[in-house]
Structure formats: structure tokens, C-alpha cells
Amino acid sequence: MLIDHPLLGPRDEAEFVILGDAGLIDRPDWQAEDAAQLFHDYLHLRDNPAGEHRELWFHEQGDRSWLVVTRNTLTHEIVRVELARDVAIARGRDR
């Protein structure tokens, strides 16, 4: 697979490591009433879709940036690559 890095252009998948579902960006509020349940779900449960999947990749052998890659799990086709920082800020996180 070639991952089209937003800053560096197409790079081989071997330069990256994958963390998993991009939902990991949305860390629950630790002060919430049901924080224990929220963190259990956040850490352990997955949508695991057959089709488009948003996931976090780390450019370990490159510029060490975190990316959100939208990839089809049925075909391995990569549809979209964004900087994870941009995605996190757009979702209301401060960094």
C-alpha cells in the first residue's frame, strides 16, 4: 500500500505503523459520571467495519507525524489521508 502523505507525498506502508481506529482520538471525559464505562468502550470496543475505515497511522520511519487514513478494508484502497492534528482540532480538541 502507498500512503499519500499530505506533506511528503506517496510513501510506502513499510515506513508506517498503525495504531488502529481513528475513534481513539475521541478520548472520553474522565470526569463524567459514567467515565469507567466510557473508557471501557473507548479502549476495548470497535466498529470494525467491512468497507471504509478511518484509522491512525504513525510515520515512524519518516517525519513522525500522525495521520488519519481512510482506507477500504475490503480492497485496501486508500481514499483519503489527513494530518491527525487537523482532524483532532476539527473535532474540538485543543491539539
Binding site: G20, D21, H44, L45, R46, D47, N48, P49, A50, T73
Partner: peptide
């Protein structure tokens, strides 16, 4: 292998990735 997909029909999310 397809547990996530099939159990999804029952509305369950699993501690599993394929």
C-alpha cells in the same frame, strides 16, 4: 474472522478487530 460484521446485525460492538 467476520465476527464484527455478523454480530453487528444484532447491534453489538465487540472487543475485536478483523
Amino acid at each position: 474472522g467476520s465476527s464484527g460484521r455478523v454480530m453487528g446485525y444484532a447491534g453489538l460492538r465487540l472487543p475485536i478487530e478483523s
